[in-house]
Write a protein that binds this DNA or RNA. Structure first.
Length: 758
DNA sequence: ATAGGGTTAG
């Protein structure tokens, strides 16, 4: 009999346990694997005849993650089997088992041997290898296999195409490639099915192509291809990734009517979507909903929830989730610890970070790239360069290799400390290491300009003597490792010995060098790049410096430049209509990207005295709901705004309630201005925004006071504010003016103007 | 052959 038919159940036949049952029982009773699988195989060899039996065994071993014994079993069976196509079946099965376990290299070895021995040249073997590469995110390799398959005269089938499209979605999704494969498939008369579309949807989700995903979904309906839970979950993921959380909720609500019921994957996708767009209450509501619907939380759901709390710094709740998870028998894993390490690191609780790292290792969990990345960038943020060096050295010792995210994260951490020069060094190092920086890497550095945090260098120096001894005495430091060099220098406080203005000038040159590199490397800038440039402008002390940056903006994107420059010089109708179409584009981004752009643009305008222009931008942002519920008659919420945007907004709000007063209406009894706790300040709890607003209120004589119970809130009564608004001088201080104005005609020439003439 | 979790810029 064949194993295939008993599907892992113990079966008795003629009061004797079948071969299937025996081996399955052996598998079950040796969860740690076998030392003597060869003996068992020899013993059972007479009973295991068909290659189907061995295939079943391979799959069972694969399900247990035991690829070592699976390989032995495969070798054993392949030597026994004489028929070529049976050998071929075994090979395909082995390749797919290895592929599922992420062992693409081993799969390739098996494949190569099978081909050279003359039994591997089958569609199944090729498809299995493509799928193995897909799982490991090796799209190029998968396509290479596909080509050689065609070259050797084999015809790809539906499974081959589906696996190949799947490969395009992993490791930097590439929709262009996927659609080329899709077309190739159609041309070769292979009809796409549900899985083809599901895989295409996954590519869209990974590539951030929400509109395309939606039209593919419609196409599916049109072609009468059923949608299953994979389809919906992938579609929801695409919507969430595109920042369309409301649309995602709408789609989720339609699922039940199609008899596709949300499962734990649906919920964790949605929860992550909510969390990503800052809607924590909705995220937590979904967890309750999930429990009410009787859907059990699994490992991923728990880790998702825990990560949300850890990221918010709500550690008691994070630990409670961890406890609950362990109480139902799911042990904390590397993902759990990475979230915790990252959360504590972000809050500057480094003792806790160290403690957790020890605990993690005690639990026999193996730290990975992300673990070390969280540790190292966390320590850097706190100026703990000795610890950062230690963690980095250990990381190297484990044989782990840095990637672009690792470097970007580290560069960002150093940039936030104002160490722009060190970052430029690391940028060179990563390129020498064969890692290509991406737009995120560059944006971090641009954004760093002028953000020089005040670092106490004296203190750093004292500490450095210890760390140097430590570094020299105890560690094996590779001479040419730039990261260690940078940490060493930082620990010595070398970069802090230059004077502030000298350093700013150096930083400025570094940033200009970054732009040059971006052009050389053909890195496409994005909205964040534009926001970063505008923010850098706001930190320039002179118009001349800012004009150099704006020139870079012009080279990147003439439209954004036209708007920024036009508003800076005193806008007119032409600039404004350009601005409106730019705002239309920005509105398509997710909400935090959009608000960051408005914040940056307004800050820049305010900084250079174009206050009326700043206010126009802010009011347009309000109209388009860039910031959530900005104002009512009684309350204005500024906590998502930059200081320039917030100040422009306060003027607009006061003017608004002033007209209420002059129309003869009464103001609410209590008026509040919320500044939050300084979301835009670098130090938690340091209310840069609050201070800016306080200064503004004082300067215009607005009668507001800090609330007793909330230091982030200014309050006043309707009566007091009414009296002040009625004073003769009030209107004048409220109405904003631009320092520069341009004639309101002939402005179609504007975009062709040269950079700021000053 | 298909779905969700931990990392980067604002």
């Amino acid at each position: 009999m064949s194993f295939k038919k008993c599907k892992g159940k113990l079966m008795k036949k003629n009061s004797e346990i079948s071969p299937c049952g025996v081996v399955v029982e052996l598998l079950v009773s040796s969860p740690g694997g076998f030392d003597n699988i060869d003996d068992i195989l020899v013993e059972f060899q007479p009973k295991l005849r068909a290659s189907d039996d061995y295939t079943f065994l391979l799959r069972e071993l694969g399900n247990r993650g035991d690829w070592v014994n699976a390989m032995r079993c495969f070798e054993f069976a392949i030597n026994l089997e004489k028929r070529r196509n049976e050998k071929g079946k075994l090979a395909s099965s082995m390749i797919s088992t290895l592929g599922r376990l992420g062992k693409a290299d081993l799969a390739k070895n098996v494949f190569d041997v099978a081909v050279s021995e003359g039994y591997g040249n089958t569609v199944y073997a090729y498809s299995a290898l493509i799928s193995a590469y897909a799982k490991s995110g090796c799209c190029d390799e998968a396509i290479g296999v596909f080509r050689s398959m065609k070259d050797s005269g084999l015809k790809p089938n539906l499974v081959t195409y589906n696996a190949l499209i799947d490969a395009c979605g992993k490791g930097g999704a590439n929709y262009k490639r996927a659609s080329e494969i899709f077309n190739d498939m159609l041309e070769n008369g292979v009809l796409p099915d549900r899985i083809t579309y599901n895989s295409l949807l996954a590519v869209c989700s990974g590539a951030g192509l929400w509109e395309v995903a939606r039209s593919l979904f419609d196409e599916m309906v049109h072609r009468r291809i059923d949608q299953d839970i994979y389809t919906y979950n992938t579609l929801l993921d695409a919507a969430c990734n595109g920042g369309h959380i409301d649309v995602a909720f709408e789609i989720m609500a339609t699922m039940a009517a199609k008899s596709v019921f949300p499962n734990e994957v649906t919920y964790s996708t949605m929860i992550r979507g909510c969390a990503k767009s800052g809607k924590m209450d909705r995220a937590l509501n979904l967890f309750n909903e999930m429990k009410l619907a009787g859907i059990k939380l699994d490992r991923v759901s728990y880790n998702t929830l825990l990560a949300i709390y850890a990221n918010l710094g709500r550690f008691n709740e994070a630990f409670a989730v961890g406890k609950e998870m362990e109480s139902i028998g799911i042990k904390k894993d590397v993902v759990t610890y990475n979230s915790l390490l990252d959360g504590f690191g972000k809050q500057g609780m480094y003792d806790k970070v160290k403690e957790l790292f020890v605990e993690m290792k005690r639990g026999n969990l193996c730290p990975n790239l992300l673990t070390y990345s969280a540790l190292i960038s966390g320590f850097c943020k706190g100026g703990l360069y000795k610890e950062a060096t230690e963690a980095y050295t250990e990381f190297k010792r484990q044989g782990l290799k840095a990637d672009v995210v690792f470097y970007s994260n580290l560069i960002d951490a150093l940039c936030k400390k104002g160490l722009v020069e060190s970052c430029a060094l690391l940028l060179d190092e990563m390129m020498r290491d064969g890692i290509q920086p991406n737009v995120v890497t560059y944006n971090s550095i641009i954004n760093a300009f002028g953000q020089t945090e005040t670092v106490d260098y004296a203190e750093t120096q004292i500490e450095s003597s210890n760390s140097l001894t430590y570094t020299d005495g105890k560690m094996v430091v590779k001479e040419d490792d730039q990261i260690i060099e940078v940490f060493k220098q930082l620990a010595c406080g070398k970069s802090g010995n230059v004077k502030q203005d000298q350093r700013t000038r150096k930083d400025f040159r570094c940033v200009l060098g970054i732009f040059r590199k971006m052009h050389e490397m053909k890195i496409k800038p994005n909205v964040v790049t534009f926001s970063a440039i505008l923010n850098a402008c706001s930190r320039c002390n002179s118009f001349e410096e800012a004009s150099l940056l704006l020139e870079e903006l012009r080279l990147f994107d003439n439209q954004v430049y036209g708007v920024a420059y036009g508003l800076l010089m005193g806008h007119n109708e032409h600039t404004w209509s350009q601005a409106l179409s730019l705002f239309d584009e920005v509105k398509r981004m997710d909400s935090s990207t959009a608000s960051a752009f408005y914040n940056a643009l307004t800050d820049m305008l305010w900084h250079f005295g174009q206050k009326r222009g700043a206010q126009l931008v802010v009011l347009e942002g309000k109209r388009r709901e860039v910031w959530e519920n900005t104002w009512t008659q009684s309350c204005i919420d500024l906590h998502l705004m930059s200081s320039g945007a917030a100040r422009a907004m306060v003027h607009a709000w006061l003017l608004n309630i002033r007209s209420t007063v002059f129309e003869g209406h009464e103001l609410p009894r209590l008026l509040s201005i919320l500044t939050g706790w300084g979301k835009h300040s670098k130090v938690v709890g340091d209310g840069a925004l609050k201070r800016a607003i306080e200064a503004l209120l004082v300067s215009i004589g607005a009668p507001f006071q800090v609330a007793k119970c909330n230091i982030g809130r200014f309050v006043s009564t309707g009566a007091v504010v009414t009296a002040w608004l009625r004073e003769s001088g009030t209107l004048e201080v409220l109405v904003l003016q631009d320092d520069r104005t341009l004639p309101r005609t002939r402005f179609d020439l504007l975009p062709n103007l040269q950079p700021l003439p000053l």
